[in-house]
Design a protein around this nucleic acid. Structure first.
Lengths: 113, 113
DNA sequence: ATCATGCTTAGCCATGTAGCTAACTAACGC
DNA sequence: GCGTTAGTTAGCTACATGGCTAAGCATGAT
């Protein structure tokens, strides 16, 4: 059984909320101020701040403050472990299919002999 | 802003728990009975049943019952929307980098003229 | 200095979640 | 038929989460 990786849980949990996903999609297009992110969501600022905090804790965004303006930007490398985990499941599954294929091919060879 | 897709929330939420990820990893290697999945987790059966229920609701696994044995197997295609979403963010981000590259190259050309 | 703007924090509420125990049903083996 | 095994359901607990309001701080504009 694979060992417990807390970063993956934070990561997938952060992605589990639609508001946070929409924020990430917006930030993938380029940095944005907090209010620029909040307006399209229709949520109150403290709620958006909380969502941003979750994304920051998961390492998915970074923020910088200039005066009273806080700018958020995506950290795309943070999505890498999620993609890796998904790829690993696919690799395991496809290796299994390959083994099944080989097994079927062998079985048909022996049946033909 | 991208539209709200409830399946993605179920999907990422299901993946946010380490026990459920370990179950999926095991099932990627091949089908397994409920007790085979439960034993390595050290959790009580009702808890494991709940985790399986979450995975089933997210479409990540399917189960079949033969007598008193319930066998679970992975539905790897259900991971596809997650990978797609991740790929879309990467594509958006990399398109932005390409645009930045072109901008920088142009700026340097104009500076040299 | 005052007002406006942008953000931040604290606390509350309702809902959801991950674990458990207890009790139960269904299938299997002898 | 009886005991065992595999799974299921209901309910509880403690904690987490997504939303809000209220209040506050810091910065910017006039």
């Amino acid at each position: 059984m694979a060992k417990h990786d807390p970063d993956l849980s934070l990561l997938f949990s952060a992605l589990a909320d639609p508001t946070r996903r929409s924020i990430l999609t917006r930030l993938a297009q380029g940095p944005a101020k907090v209010t620029e992110l909040a307006d399209p969501t229709g949520l109150r600022l403290p709620t958006v701040m909380r969502h941003l905090s979750v994304l920051k804790t998961a390492g998915l965004i970074a923020t910088t403050k200039d005066g009273r303006i806080r700018t958020c930007e995506i950290r795309p490398e943070a999505l890498h472990p999620a993609r890796t985990w998904l790829d690993q499941q696919r690799a395991t599954w496809e290796a299994r299919l390959d083994r099944l294929d080989a097994f079927v091919v062998n079985a048909m060879k022996e049946r033909d002999q």
